[in-house]
Design a protein around this nucleic acid. Structure first.
Length: 138
DNA sequence: TTAGCGTTCCGTCATCTGCG
DNA sequence: CGCAGATGACGGAACGCTAA
């Protein structure tokens, strides 16, 4: 499993990258004061540059009653706002999901370590009993 | 010095899933 | 059945390491 192997491989990189990103994020927020925008990480991904606001992605309903949508302008503004809210929520959900996954993997690794120790102990115990049995037999 | 590679994290999209 | 949240997949950015 790649994740397990690599997470032990270079923890120093991980922490440094995280620090760097947090710094960028903090700087970005300080400058813009914007909390809904797309570059909450501070670095604008190439994806955003190459794909500026796809027309009507992922579950964005053409919602809003006719009362609230008088003109196309309002209509697109509402759609944009909904998209931003959805992206923000998904961004946070992805972050949380990754955190949980990491925790889960750590738990599994701990369990592996415990079981390996138990296995080793049992093997030694078995060996000792075998020795004892042999001596008695002789 | 630097190009190339490996690793980690992130944001986004697509899809799945559970709930009302 | 529709919606919101969770998650897998993908591609990009940043960084460290290493061989040339």
């Amino acid at each position: 499993m790649l994740l397990i192997a690599t997470s032990y491989g270079a923890p120093h990189i991980e922490s440094r990258v995280r620090e760097h990103r947090l710094e960028l994020y903090a700087r970005h927020m300080a400058v813009t004061g914007d909390e809904t925008e797309s570059a909450a990480t501070g670095d604008i991904s190439a994806y955003q540059i190459h794909n500026p606001a796809p027309s009507l992605p992922q579950g964005v309903m053409m919602s809003g009653s006719p009362n609230s949508m008088h003109c196309p302008q309002q209509h697109t503004e509402e759609a944009t706002r909904k998209r931003e809210v959805r992206l923000l929520k998904n961004r946070e959900a992805a972050r949380e999901c990754r955190r949980k996954k990491k925790e889960y993997v750590k738990c599994l690794e701990n369990r592996v370590a415990v079981l390996e120790n138990q296995n080793k102990t049992l093997i030694e115990e078995l060996k000792a009993l075998k020795d004892l049995y042999c001596h008695k037999a002789n």
